[in-house]
Write a protein that binds this DNA or RNA. Sequence first.
DNA 1: CTGTTAGCGCGTTCAT
DNA 2: ATGAACGCGCTAACAG
Lengths: 337, 337
Amino acid sequence: MQNRPGRSPRITISDVSTAAKVSAATVSRVLNGTAKVDPQLVDRVHDAVRELGYRPNAAAQGLARGEWGTIGVLVPDLANPYFPEVLKAVSAVARAHGRRMMVMESDEDPALEYELVEDLMRCCDGVLLASPRMPRAELVDLLGRDHPMVLFNRVVAGARVPSISVDFTGGMTQVCGHLAQLGHRRAAYLGGPPASWGNDERVRAFEAARAFGLEVTVVECGGSTSQAGYDAVAAVLESEATAVLAYNDLVALGAIARLRELGVGVPDELSVIGFDDISLDRVAHSDLTTVSVPRDELGRRAGEMLERLLVNEYSEEPLYLPMTLQVRDTSGPPAVR
Amino acid sequence: MQNRPGRSPRITISDVSTAAKVSAATVSRVLNGTAKVDPQLVDRVHDAVRELGYRPNAAAQGLARGEWGTIGVLVPDLANPYFPEVLKAVSAVARAHGRRMMVMESDEDPALEYELVEDLMRCCDGVLLASPRMPRAELVDLLGRDHPMVLFNRVVAGARVPSISVDFTGGMTQVCGHLAQLGHRRAAYLGGPPASWGNDERVRAFEAARAFGLEVTVVECGGSTSQAGYDAVAAVLESEATAVLAYNDLVALGAIARLRELGVGVPDELSVIGFDDISLDRVAHSDLTTVSVPRDELGRRAGEMLERLLVNEYSEEPLYLPMTLQVRDTSGPPAVR
DNA sequence: CTGTTAGCGCGTTCAT
DNA sequence: ATGAACGCGCTAACAG
């Protein structure tokens, strides 16, 4: 972009205008199709552009246009298999609208999030906040900045901000119903990150299952990784539950690995159910019973919501996407004793 | 960034300078620590910044500084589990150097890649080209643009460009040795995307295994997804191989799913080996025999290479990271007949 | 130490 | 239809 030592000087629009013997304004018009230009000049411009290898400077365009041509996405953990598909869909939508996608990761650190969102607001037309962990007050503060923003997997009551989220409540209810019908009377929930709204939702729905006569115990494992699930197994066994629901599939898989080590049969002695359905592939599903969510649709809808917002078509109601119970091999009737 | 209808006007540095009763230059100095400023003024500036909620415009900064503060990464497929961890590491390195990360996806389309890289060069200080599929000529053309760029999982002979790559050759050799020692005499390779350099490398090393008396057959499946693996099983069976190596784990898993449907025992009747080791988690490894690569190190090294390049510390030699054979449950001695 | 001035590269008036 | 002139918001060079 500049004259850095040892690097060839950047070609600007005026280089092109000189070479094509037209004004810079004409070059701009040709390249953006903003106005009609004499076909001869158009050709001259195109030739010059090609010969010089000119490419408009995005920063300068952004400054002049008052738009960055970029959206920003903040995720808690890039390595979480949940997000790639979402990002893919968001990216596709953004591109369809001529925008690039900036990605940041907060590393599950609520404190960092605030800072990163501020940074995103400095360089993006709109921001997609995926599964924010930050405290409500900070979030509201950020929303008050009046910068286009969409909330993903978190709904903030009273805040006038577009939100899209998985219907965790419905998913959890399906899972509990499934267990109840299998004959389970005592279930444990392996909670995820403490600051996670999605986790709170799951917990609420889980505890509501008491209405169906299910005894429920919440076991905090404090994370969203398989390691967290692995480490929390002891506490689960203490609860004497015959089924355990995990915050997500990763946690569930970690728990299963530990149970296998301990010689506890799944699902014979303990049913294990995950959340999210992050199977590696479409054809060879892993055998984990879980509830799935269409992540690409989720990403697509989120992207579209943001794009709509960017042209001021604000839609008031939060959108909830349903989950689907996937009964596979890790859930079954409780052990008889 | 601008006065969009219905949105509050953007606060600029001059708003701050007015409020703090100092010049814009001073505000800039305070915020960037570029020069010493009277403590009183510093306070006034900070107060004004806080009260107004001022945040510098990234595009304007970029324009003035001649740097975007951004690196760009282009991947063939965001949904491929290979990349999230790489992106995570790259992002961390970039952030440590005060840079943001732009992500683009070519959707495995070589034609699209060229266009996207050009776009990245317009808005990023440096570009990380992850597993490019584009033809060599185009790639060389792009490299000639003299824009900081690092090649990831592709080495271009003769091109003076920093590259970092997995040692696919070594990985493939290990796999073939493993199979030979198990007693296999006939193996098939389930190839990946046609334009993939990494695929070519694997094929070359695979065919070199003939030197060890292994009869080898390459079966094109044309993709890198589990679906591709699933669909190519018939061809594999025709080859009468007793072991099949797949382009990556996804392809291998797809193949296994199909084999299971067909009632072909793995590994009893056919050994299946993957590439990449994209297990979902750290504690509960899937049972696929595969060769792994430290993706986070790969990403980290790639990011650091790019950062070094951005300060003109060009390192000539391509870097190859070794793969590690992970013998698990899908490989075994050939069936006796 | 501080303010004034002059760009950074581009889009967009406003005249012509 | 075209060019000249200005401004986007910020940093850096130059005075004072």
